[in-house]
Design a protein around this nucleic acid. Structure first.
Length: 594
RNA sequence: GGGGACGUGGCGCAAUUGGUUAGCGCACCGGACUGUCGAUCCGGUGGUCGCGGGUUCGAAUCCCGUCGUCCCCGCCA
């Protein structure tokens, strides 16, 4: 007989009755009746009830064994009496009556009580991650992640892509996020950087003629964490295609994401092709470039209606360059006054000067600003918002960018507070036609708004003949339920267009040559037109698992301050290591005064 | 870098808003119990209330500082 097990803890059924079997696992729960002891034995696969009689030599030892102790038990599979069957357990029709038992690894009292559903402090969970990972929910998430990654590889390979690996030790890139640096021992004073993404390498693979690339790629960025953003490192399904149009790239991504989401989730997934929303339209209708389309509210502009109205606060502001954005909401006329007051307070808390609203209540229209508006103006607003009896429109007035943001925030809050978000669907969309350039708020200068490697729509002609702020880029995002899953672009593979784009953003050719020499040089030896995208794997798993926090889909995550509390990383290193790397740690005071 | 919330036995929480010996549930220890499946019942151990300072006759509670965790803003081409 196998020294540890003949079966897994989810395998035994009534048909196995009478067999002598061996199981190994953790003591998940104990029920001690004095004259009889029940143990729920748990492994990766499931739970089997073990019955221990007091006549057994190990009865006393098991009675006193702490939870999470690892044991190997040998005994006979016994069918349970009708009344003692546990229908909640796949193995609930049988139990194992123990004849032999080996205590493989006694446990101390666990800092995490696994059978309980009480959440414990994140700090404790991270420090004892190997225990926390035994919990069914987290265990399943990590297993789901494994299956999703295997599935992604399978679908991509079937679609004619090959997985290529790219360097982890590379060089610091001049734009984007802060790099993680790795000092060179051999080269005094020089550093490698961990890749923020394999961006340059995947483009160089296209130049090298590999045509269709993908990689489950680790990415490293030294930026602060969020609930949906792991600090330090994360994974992307990195994709790049030669001779591909935007439509072809969309088709590939739609296929792999729909397939994956449908395979691993019960929720409804949008049929393809997904709707495409130009960036400007998204900012107007949803107040964000990552709209949650599950919220049935569309913002509209009504600046013109207010411009000549008697509501001076708005009319004056519109004449001074502000806009009025309207947020129409169905059927909430009966919400108490406190609901509206709280929403006004919320609007103010996020920087709005106020929040006006009108309520369509039967034949009457009421609300704080009603008296300032003419019948024609009210009619126009109702028509624009598709308003019927019971509906409410909220109004935000501010400079265009700020008004859009505030209206978008309020739209999201209404979605949550009114519970009008359909939790059973994944709503996907493409955000397209991002602007190539934007004005830097502080300096007023024209800067790249997204990715300097994107091809401008219209190519060189657009750069030469259009206002820089009007030039659109072949740049796109995938958004699912308000989560930005991915960003991508058709790349700029033409050196002369790249020089021109950088010139508009205020960089001379020497800057392009110095910072992007590898790519630029490569493009001088025959570069195929190409483009790609990189959906975030962690966020994908998070959405499918329904996790609120990205740590719930990562086996060994860091905390918000980018520390691994289990391994105690980052840690100090020896003076000898530092000397070998030609590194001297500055005093803290020096840093503070800089 | 900034804002907010939280910090009380191993874990999750409470303490009537400054007042007696800091309670409760789970875990843990001891006892009872041969059919439970979150077993039950009886009894018990365990806390310098994150840390430091201050106010007060008296501080878990108020004030100041500091550390830690989480959430958000900045940041994330």
């Amino acid at each position: 007989m196998h020294p540890y097990r003949t079966h897994k803890c989810d395998e035994l059924r009534k048909s196995d009755a009478g067999a002598t079997v061996r199981l190994s696992g953790w003591i998940f729960r104990k029920r001690d009746h004095g004259g009889i002891l029940f143990i729920d034995l748990r492994d990766h696969y499931g739970i089997t009830q073990v019955v221990v009689h007091p006549s057994r030599s190990f009865f006393e030892a098991l009675t006193h064994a702490k939870l999470e102790t690892v044991v190997t038990v040998t005994g006979v599979v016994t069918p349970r009496e009708e009344s003692t069957v546990n229908p909640d357990l796949p193995t609930g029709e049988i139990e194992m009556v123990a004849d032999e038992c080996v205590l493989e690894s006694p446990a101390e009292q666990s800092p995490i009580y696994l059978p309980g559903d009480d959440d414990c402090a994140e700090e404790v969970r991270l420090k004892y991650r190997y225990i926390d990972l035994r919990r069914e929910s987290l265990h399943n998430n990590i297993l789901l992640r494994s299956k999703i990654i295997a599935h992604l590889r399978q679908v991509m390979t079937a679609a004619g892509f090959n997985e290529y690996q790219t360097p982890i030790l590379t060089c610091s890139s001049p734009e984007g996020a802060r790099d993680y640096l790795v000092p060179s021992r051999v080269h005094h004073g020089k550093f490698y950087a961990l890749p923020q993404a394999p961006q340059l390498f995947k483009q160089l693979l296209m130049v090298a003629g590999f045509d269709r690339y993908f990689q489950i790629a680790p990415c490293f960025r030294d930026e602060d964490a969020r609930a949906d953003r792991s600090p330090g490192e994360f994974y992307q399904l990195d994709i790049e295609m030669s001779y591909a149009t935007q439509d072809e790239i969309f088709a590939v991504v739609e296929r792999v994401l729909v397939d994956t989401f449908k395979t691993f989730s019960e929720k409804t997934v949008d049929e393809t092709p997904w709707i495409r929303i130009p960036y400007q339209e998204a900012m107007l209708k949803y107040g964000t470039d990552k709209p949650d389309l599950r919220i049935p509210i569309e913002i509209f502009d009504c600046s013109a209606t207010f411009a000549n109205s008697g509501f001076n606060a708005f009319a004056g502001a519109v004449k001074a360059g502000s806009v009025v954005r309207a947020i129409p909401v169905k059927g909430i006329k009966d919400k108490p006054r406190s609901f509206f007051d709280r929403l006004v307070a919320y609007a103010q808390s996020i920087g709005s000067k106020g929040l006006a609203y009108l309520v369509w209540d039967g034949d009457e229209i009421r609300g704080p600003i009603k008296k300032f508006l003419s019948d024609d103006e009210l009619t126009a607003l109702a028509a624009a918002g598709g308003v019927t009896d019971g509906d409410v429109i909220f109004f935000v007035c501010d400079k265009p960018t700020k008004a859009a943001g505030i209206a978008g925030d309020i739209r999201s809050k209404l979605g949550r507070d009114l519970a009008i978000i359909d939790e059973k669907v994944f709503r996907f969309c493409w955000i397209v036609d991002f602007p190539m350039f934007e004005l830097d708020e502080e300096s007023g200068a024209v800067v790249f708004s997204h990715n300097p490697f994107s091809m401008p729509q219209g190519g060189m002609d657009a750069l030469l003949n259009q206002e820089p702020l009007d030039v659109l880029a072949w740049q796109y995002d995938v958004v699912c339920n308000g989560v930005e899953l991915s960003s991508g672009a058709i790349r700029n593979h033409r050196p002369e267009i790249m020089y021109k784009a950088f010139e508009i953003a205020g960089y001379g050719p020497e800057v392009v040559e110095e910072k992007f020499s590898s790519l630029l040089n490569a493009f001088k030896y025959g570069a195929p037109p190409h483009g790609g995208i990189a959906p975030g794997v962690d966020r994908m798993v998070m959405l499918i698992a329904g996790a609120e926090n990205i740590r719930e889909v990562i086996a060994f995550p860091m905390n918000q301050r980018a520390q691994d509390l289990m391994m105690d990383a980052p840690s100090e290193v020896s003076e000898r290591q530092l000397r070998e790397l030609h590194i001297k740690i500055r005093g803290k005071e020096v840093n503070q005064t800089e």
